[in-house]
Amino acid sequence: MLLIRCPYCEEERPELEFRNAGEAHIARSANMAGESDDDFEKFFFIRSNPKGIIYERWRHMHGCARFFNAVRDTVTDKFVMTYKAGEPKPSKLPGVGK
């Protein structure tokens, strides 16, 4: 069972309190109705599924109930960092790429 740091509670809590909510940094268009079929496909269906670093959304379901973003390594299953929803994708990751 993983420990996940909630950036709102500022605490590491057990995985049981959280729920994964899919890949992060996929913005919904401000002009949704005007999106082309291709753009909608990219937005709704296409996900990166990387081997290595993934940016994903989690919700502290049984805690503060906030959605936030996390960086996780899909190979080691380790959480590299977490940050609040709406914050930009971090440009530097602690402990990665050394």
Partner: peptide, 12 residues
């Protein structure tokens, strides 16, 4: 959950 998701992340 669906409502909270949109409220917190798309329409904050």
């Amino acid at each position: 959950n669906h409502m909270e998701d949109y409220l917190q992340t798309e329409f904050p």
